[in-house]
């Protein structure tokens, strides 16, 4: 385990070169076919979604992605999903349910896209609908926080039977900068805010919000990806043994017991 401070982990999670959803899909999923659009209004570049094979198992995979180049980042609006992104994700989860395919979600975003247009098209409604419908999807769901898990915009893909985090990823109700501004009227105190928010993978494991931490220390991206792939594969085998009702109950009870 690394000895990074909470805020160093925030920095690592946001790291310019840190692999996001696109990397994991590319390196984990065979014969991946990207599927576009929400069938309502548009196609969101911040969410890459599609179907393929994971160790021979047909899966639906949905990942947040911000892009590498500045052009790509603008196109993907820096990885902040719009309502269309959440609706595309939900559409493909319903499709996975129909064909009885496990669903894998990769989460890494500073938060849901913030803009006049996103509000006009119901950003709140889109996230709410995902939380609600994901609770009823009759297929295994595994959510992985790979970067910054930014509040409701992250949770909208996070209602899984299993939720795990990479060692240096973070998951929080508010950004440390936002928290510092509210608490001390000083965004430069974000490092202190990161400590009080208890947003590291280790904190969340202690709170029983996540089941598993995937090690990162001294490992290459390829090795991390391979270990994560093994973990997901094993969990899919376990979850596939459960009946549809057991899957729903396990998912409901997992969240039901938090803050009881």
């Amino acid at each position: 385990m690394s000895n990074l401070t909470a805020y160093e982990k925030v920095a690592a999670a946001r790291g310019n070169k840190r692999p996001m959803g696109g990397y994991f899909i590319k390196n984990m999923i065979d014969n991946f076919v990207e599927l576009h659009g929400d069938r309502r209004y548009g196609d969101d570049g911040a969410i890459i979604a599609g179907v393929g094979f994971l160790n021979g198992e047909a899966v639906t995979v949905i990942g947040m992605e911000r892009g590498d180049t500045i052009e790509e980042r603008i196109k993907r609006h820096f990885g902040c999903p719009t309502p269309e992104g959440y609706r595309k994700a939900l559409r493909l989860m319903k499709n996975a349910e129909k064909f009885n395919r496990p669903i894998i979600c990769f989460i890494g975003s500073s938060g849901a896209y913030c803009g006049i247009d996103a509000e006009e098209r119901g950003q709140g409604e889109a996230i709410a609908e995902n939380l609600y419908k994901m609770m009823g999807i009759k297929a295994p769901i595994i959510s992985v926080i790979v970067g910054e898990g930014g509040s409701g915009g992250a949770l909208a893909l996070g209602v899984g039977n299993r939720v795990c985090m990479l060692e240096n990823s973070v998951y929080s109700v508010i950004s440390p900068e936002g928290c510092a501004t509210i608490l001390w009227k000083d965004a430069t105190k974000a490092s202190d805010a990161a400590d009080v928010l208890k947003l590291t993978a280790q904190d969340l494991k202690e709170f029983d919000v996540i089941e598993k931490i995937i090690d990162e220390k001294d490992l290459t991206s390829e090795e991390i990806c391979s270990n994560l792939k093994n973990y997901i594969s094993e969990e899919i085998i376990t979850l596939k043994k459960m009946s549809k009702q057991e899957l729903l109950d396990q998912r409901y009870n997992k969240f039901r017991k938090i803050g009881r």
């Binding site: 009823g136 109700v173 409901y252």
Partner: peptide, 25 residues
Amino acid sequence: ARMQEGIISLMQMAKVSGAVKRHSD
């Protein structure tokens, strides 16, 4: 969501939404 309870507050969104769904179902 209440900042002072961090991630536990965020998870309440999923928890309550689940209960609303079971009521609706």
